[in-house]
């Protein structure tokens, strides 16, 4: 089990960031992903495997300033 933005999500072996975003239906183009407070670059979404028990934050950035 992992936690994604405070919600429990089932974990499986070799779960990548890209797969997790698909499972959670996060389709916004402007996301910041942190796994256990470690920043995951967009280019690493396929390679980065999420460990079981992780705390994942997915932040959607909005315009305005």
């Amino acid at each position: 089990m992992i936690e994604v933005n405070g919600q429990e999500v089932a974990w499986r072996e070799n779960l990548s960031v890209r797969e997790l975003l698909q499972i959670c239906k996060y389709s916004f183009p402007l996301l910041i992903v942190k796994v256990n407070d470690e920043f995951v670059a967009r280019s690493d979404y396929d390679n980065f495997k999420i460990p079981d028990g992780s705390n994942v934050s997915v932040v959607h950035l909005m315009s305005g300033g």
């Binding site: 910041i32 942190k34 407070d37 470690e38 920043f39 934050s57 932040v59 959607h60 909005m62 315009s63 305005g64 300033g65």
Partner: peptide, 16 residues
Amino acid sequence: AVYGRLVLCGDQTTEA
């Protein structure tokens, strides 16, 4: 909201 060394300020919902 604090995510490690990223701190995000705002309501995180209202887009301009």
